[in-house]
Structures are given as C-alpha cells and as structure tokens.
Simulated assay, not measured.
Amino acid sequence: MNDNPDTLTVLAVDDEPPALDELAYLLRRRDEIVSVHTAGDATTALRLLRDGGIDAVFLDINMPGLDGLELAGILRNFAQPPSVVFVTAHDDRAVAAFDLGAVDYLLKPLREERLAEAVRRIAERRRAGADNTPAPAASDEVIPVELGGVTTLVPRSSVRWVEADGDYARLHTATGSHLVRIPISTLESRWADAGFLRVHRSFLVALPLVTGIRSVGSGLVVCLRPEGDQQVVELPVSRRHTRELKDRLIRGPMQTWTSR
C-alpha cells in the first residue's frame, strides 16, 4: 500500500471487458486515485494483489473460476488487506458482501456519485487507520436498497423496525420503508448485538426505541417512540417472544444499546 492516506492505488476486477473499461475510466476520473490497475479474472487479480501496493479493490462478484466473494475471503487473510468494494449487477449478495467486510456494494450500471461515495468511504478508512482511530462508518452497517434504478444506502441506525415480507424484509425508518432481498431471520441474527429483538415472526424492533408494552384484547403490543410527525407505532408481540422482550426491557435497553 502507498504511504499517503490521501491518495489511493486501486485495482478494478471484472471478467467483462466493456464493464472493466468503464469502471477503470470512472476510477481514473477521481482525483484521490493516483493509479488504476485492471484484471479480467480473480487469478490475475490475486497475483497483482500479492505484489502489494494496492489500497482498494473494486470487484465484480460473478466471474468464472474464483468468484469475487471467494477472492474477498482470501484477501481477509492478508496481513494488510485492501479495502473491498463490490461492483455487481445483482442486489441479492449484499449480506454476504458485508459479512466479508466490504466497504461498499455498488450496483451496475454504475453512477458516478455512488462511485464517489465508495471512494470517500475508502479514503476515510485509510485516514482512520493512519491515525490509529476507528473508521467512522465501521459501527453502523449500511444496506444498499435499489428503487427505480437508484441505489440508496440505509444505515442500520436509521431503522426503527423490520417487517417480514416472504423471503424479503421491509426496513421501516422515520422517512419511509425499503424492501430488501434479505430474510428477516438473517437480520435478526446480524443485528442482535446492535439492540434489535424479534418480537413476532413478522417483526424485529430496535429496543432503544421501545417505550413500553400494553395489552390489546388477548394479546400484547410493543410501543415504539414516535419520530418527527409520526404516530406512536404499535406492533404485535407473540407469546413465544413475550418473556424475552420483558426481560430485555427490564435490563434497560436505553443504557445498553444507545450506539445502534
């Protein structure tokens, strides 16, 4: 890696020459990037990466032989692994990508403003490493959401509750909702340490926002603190989740999970 945290040497990897040429062209337009290497397959990419000097890899996922996710898994074992940004036409591999520590996840066709955001994230992580301080975005996972050809990054900290929708999940925030191709069971496991709790087979809630529970008919609902012009949100609590919810609330969620 180069020693200047304000400049980047990057590697673009894609098995489709037109896509690789476009990615390299867009990367070379960024002032922060001083050098762009290219590779048409993971084997070539790995050889370049083992030679050192690469700060970040912009990596396609679907490639013959070793695919992008497998290559990223190998890079995690490097003494100084480069930052990884996935560039793909598929929006259903984001969970696996972020499990591998990806800095960002870009959907094709690439938009310059999203590429600029990914470069900014890499630069922040580089500067944070140089200062021996944690990267600003490291504690808050982001979920890429595609709507009408536009990719929006939804921070986990903005999610108030999650609603199951078949094999999908709907993320509810103060400004709207976003459908993502991630099962609610996956988010339940991933976000447990961030203060999210399953209260019903269809609902996962952010415990720091819970203001209480109350009886409605023969069942219970959990109440979430309103934000902005929103009304108080009430979601059903199933019998099998009631005890854990009460135990977690008694332990003081506001003190325990304030850094969602």
Rank of each mutant, 00 (worst) to 15 (best):
G195Q: 10
W191D: 07
P208C: 03
I61C: 10
L66V: 11
T38F: 00
G68C: 09
E141G: 10
A138C: 04
A137W: 05
N77L: 13
A12V: 01
I74F: 02
D6R: 14
L48I: 00
T133A: 11
D92H: 14
P81V: 07
M1A: 12
M1P: 12
P5I: 02
L11I: 00
K108T: 05
I33F: 15
T242H: 10
T173D: 11
T258H: 13
D165T: 06
L100E: 10
S215H: 08
V34W: 02
A194D: 14
L220R: 15
V10Q: 02
V13R: 07
L147K: 12
G195W: 06
G212V: 02
Q230T: 07
S83C: 15
S238G: 15
R190Y: 06
D193P: 11
G129Q: 12
V95I: 13
G149Q: 09
S158E: 15
E188N: 12
V205C: 08
H172A: 08
I33G: 09
V34M: 02
T256D: 04
R50D: 08
I54H: 01
I184C: 04
Q230G: 14
G252Q: 14
L235G: 03
E146T: 13
P144Y: 13
D14M: 08
R50T: 04
A94L: 14
I184N: 00
R29N: 15
G195L: 05
V95A: 10
H241I: 04
Q230S: 15
L115E: 11
E227G: 14
